[in-house]
């Protein structure tokens, strides 16, 4: 299994988990629903970031330095965005 297939499997797991949590968040009342919904949103936000990080590591591993650096730059932008949003 190559790295993209592994990443596809990871995204499949995230997809199933996000769907189950979204159902819980939408239909379970009170704090439980809010927590499950919050985790679902966390997965939706985190999945593309994990995907970029995975690809960045993979490209660095195979020696594609230019694009590994671009991946790192994008992750830095995302981290900066997260910091700005939480500091405001």
């Amino acid at each position: 299994m190559n790295d993209l297939r592994r990443l596809a499997s990871l995204m499949q797991i995230a997809l199933v988990a996000a769907f189950a949590l979204a159902l819980g968040g939408a239909f379970l009342p009170g704090r439980t629903g809010a927590i499950l919904g919050g985790i679902c949103i966390g997965i939706l936000i985190g999945a593309p970031i994990v995907r970029v990080a995975w690809l960045t590591v993979d490209w660095a591993r195979i020696g594609d330095r230019r694009f590994a650096l671009l991946g790192l730059a994008l992750l830095s932008v995302l981290a900066g965005g997260a910091m700005v949003s939480f500091l405001r």
Partner: peptide
Amino acid sequence: LVFQAQGRLVVSDAALVA
């Protein structure tokens, strides 16, 4: 992330849409 920090995400609405 920004909308979450601004408190503009209604979790149950968001979960239903998700």
